[in-house]
Design a protein around this nucleic acid. Structure first.
Lengths: 212, 212
DNA sequence: AGATGTGAACCAATTCACAGCG
DNA sequence: CGCTGTGAATTGGTTCACATCT
């Protein structure tokens, strides 16, 4: 693999390719060209080839790509060809929904700890996990070998959750709370915010309305 | 407002600015410079000024921006200075969590219809809404004046949900299901997929691990 | 023959640097 | 004087076009 800098957009597209390739596999495809995959993903074929080229040569000239092999190769490139263990902090509506979400284990992300600071929630069981006091994060992260943290607290408690996670040695965080968080440079944060998407939809509908 | 093409990234950042500005407002700030806002959003100050320039001149030279005014201006630019009515299709774990999510109404997105095709779910009440058969979408969309659709079905039923929504005249869709959907050009779709973010985190942690 | 892999050309978005204004 | 607003410079990402290989 080339150690060039890999655009963030490439990573996002690779995740998309896996999703679409898995659909092709379910439907029985064994080989496909970058052109076919491109159409299904709504991107340019050479975009796909460039994205893949960061990690190696996975295709066969004159033939295309073997679906199963390509899925495996991309997953390996992304580092999702293994199990990642995660802790969830904030057992509200969203937190519970994520804990119950079948796709997490199915996709290799095992949520092995659920944390909250509300004494009424501590001890409650959600989806086979006992809710534990957030203060005990460090101890549990070490015990369970957790590498990823999911923050699903209300926004005003997101920073505190982040602090606990960082202190516990977690180096990857996905923040579902609508608030920015400060963490050391060594910690990687992804923000998930539905409302940014809702705003984008509203903006586009609004534009269309004005054009008429 | 200039009718230039506005980059998608700009729209996403404007949504971010609103989020961060609302935090500043809560904390009592009345005026701030692009530099201060930039630091809080982790972007370049001139980026902010450029983004805003697509829509008008909102600042005061030598002073900065008035927090409250800027929030209002951006919301107006994005088209979120009003209420948008939405239908949710697919009342599973995620669907229920979204229906119960206080932030939707708080941010101007009112989910006024919940739909599912499972006869066991139809008639059930979730967060004050009766679950209605998906086939009745068209009728309800017209009756309730719905403009946005949220798809929270399993992936294999996402396309059908999209078809119902399009047929009902909905022109903006947010798809939470991990599947691409085909819709006419006139319909705007946003995809929300946690796993793309999880993959990005996994990739970065994986890289860090290899570097050591 | 037909698809990949890739350097070159293109285009868009970000950042710089400073003129313009309160 | 200080910060905005913006043309110019730069960076980075995407697309093209074709050499390359099965």
């Amino acid at each position: 693999m080339k150690s060039e800098h890999i655009p963030r957009a490439t990573i996002q597209r690779l995740a998309l390719y896996v999703q679409v390739l898995e659909t092709f596999r379910r439907e029985g495809s064994e080989v496909l060209s970058s052109e076919v995959l491109a159409k299904a993903c709504n991107v340019n074929p050479s975009q796909i080839r460039k994205d893949l080229a960061y990690f190696g040569e996975f295709g066969v000239r004159g033939v295309g790509y073997f679906v199963q092999d390509l899925i495996s190769s991309i997953k390996q490139a992304l580092g999702v060809d293994r199990v990642w263990k995660a802790a969830l902090v904030g057992v509200g509506n969203l937190g519970k929904a994520l804990l119950r979400h079948q796709d997490f284990p199915r996709r290799g992300f095992h949520i092995v700890g659920a944390f909250d600071c509300d004494p009424f929630k501590i001890g409650e069981e959600v989806s086979g996990l006992e809710v534990i006091c957030s203060r005990r994060l460090k101890e549990k992260v070490e015990e369970l070998d957790i590498e990823i943290g999911l923050i699903t607290t209300p926004p005003e408690r997101a920073q505190r959750a982040a602090n606990y996670l960082v202190d516990a040695g977690v180096r990857g965080i996905i923040n579902f709370a609508p608030a920015r968080i400060n963490v050391p440079e060594t910690v990687y944060v992804e923000y998930v915010d539905f409302f940014h998407h809702l705003y984008a939809v509203a903006f586009n509908l609004n534009m269309d309305n004005q054009d008429r």
